[in-house]
């Protein structure tokens, strides 16, 4: 590999320290800490406007923090110039809401786009890699040459994951992966993410509102409250005496999700 970043054994995939983000005078995060372990699936939850997407955008460099450090795979982001930024970028894949596929390119060309930028594969090999990734996310082969507008919402998200996986990243960021999917599609998508995570050894960071996803696939959950994070497993989080956390996990939907997770656990 030509990557400048060695495959370190650093225990933390992502370490955010003292992060402060603000828009004008509106402070979104203040002295926020976030540590994501290697190989775990971390869910990020929080009420509307608590800055879940802003946090994700800040980690992947689309938003400049006002203060604080972000360390990804042992390397500080935002240091070392364009080459370092490029090297670190190929270590993660991002699935935006609704896929954010390039609408002028076919699915296969979308998956090829990162390869084109970050590798010198021959066109034939590039196409083969793209077809493999498309198959890996459970799309039929005829999806390869379709344009995003010809796909359903669920298929667009799958294609988005295929593109995010193009460079075999260490970290996968997902922004509300199951939003807008029907319950069957959503739980299939959860299974896909869990499968990929296990088989490829990915670290997954996902913003979600879907309590079923949280119980089904997340190892730990980061709750964004009061401009900071509380991060722990769900049973531990539920011991915290904070009204939002209690309402979120203890409300009717939270209880229903626990019940269905337990049923699924009993069935296995």
């Amino acid at each position: 590999m030509t990557s400048d970043i060695p495959a370190s054994t650093h225990p933390l995939a992502i370490h955010v320290r003292g992060l402060r983000t603000q828009f004008g005078s509106h402070v979104v995060h203040d002295d926020l800490e976030l540590a994501v372990r290697r190989g775990e699936v971390l869910g990020i939850v929080g009420g509307s406007g608590t800055g879940k997407s802003v946090l994700l955008r800040t980690i992947i460099g689309l938003n400049r923090p006002a203060a604080g450090e972000i360390e990804v795979l042992g390397h500080l982001t935002g240091t070392g110039g364009a080459a370092a930024a490029k090297a670190i970028r190929r270590r993660w894949g991002v699935l935006f809401q609704d896929g954010a596929l390039f609408s002028s390119l076919t699915v296969a060309e979308n998956v090829e786009a990162p390869l084109r930028e970050h590798s010198n594969l021959s066109p034939r090999l590039r196409r083969e890699v793209a077809e493999l990734k498309v198959a890996l996310v459970g799309l039929p082969p005829d999806a390869n040459d379709k344009y995003p507008a010809e796909l359903s919402g669920g298929m667009r998200k799958r294609a988005g994951i295929a593109r995010a996986l193009a460079l075999d990243p260490d970290i996968l960021f997902l922004d509300e992966p199951t939003a807008g999917l029907d319950p069957i599609g959503a739980s299939n998508f959860d299974l896909l993410i869990a499968d990929l995570q296990k088989s490829l050894g990915l670290t997954v960071v996902m913003i979600t509102h879907d309590l079923d996803s949280l119980y089904a696939i997340c190892d730990r959950v980061a709750v964004l409250i009061d401009k900071k994070t509380r991060i722990d497993t769900i049973p531990e989080l539920m011991k915290i005496n904070h009204p939002w956390i209690q309402e979120y996990f203890g409300g009717p939907r939270g209880r229903a999700a626990i019940a269905s997770a337990e049923r699924a656990g009993a069935a296995v």
């Binding site: 955008r57 992947i60 460099g61 689309l62 490029k86 970028r89 993660w92 596929l101 786009a113």
Partner: peptide, 9 residues
């Protein structure tokens, strides 16, 4: 799409 583009580099 612009965000996705920047993420890819």
């Amino acid at each position: 799409e612009i965000d996705a583009m920047q993420t890819i580099g």
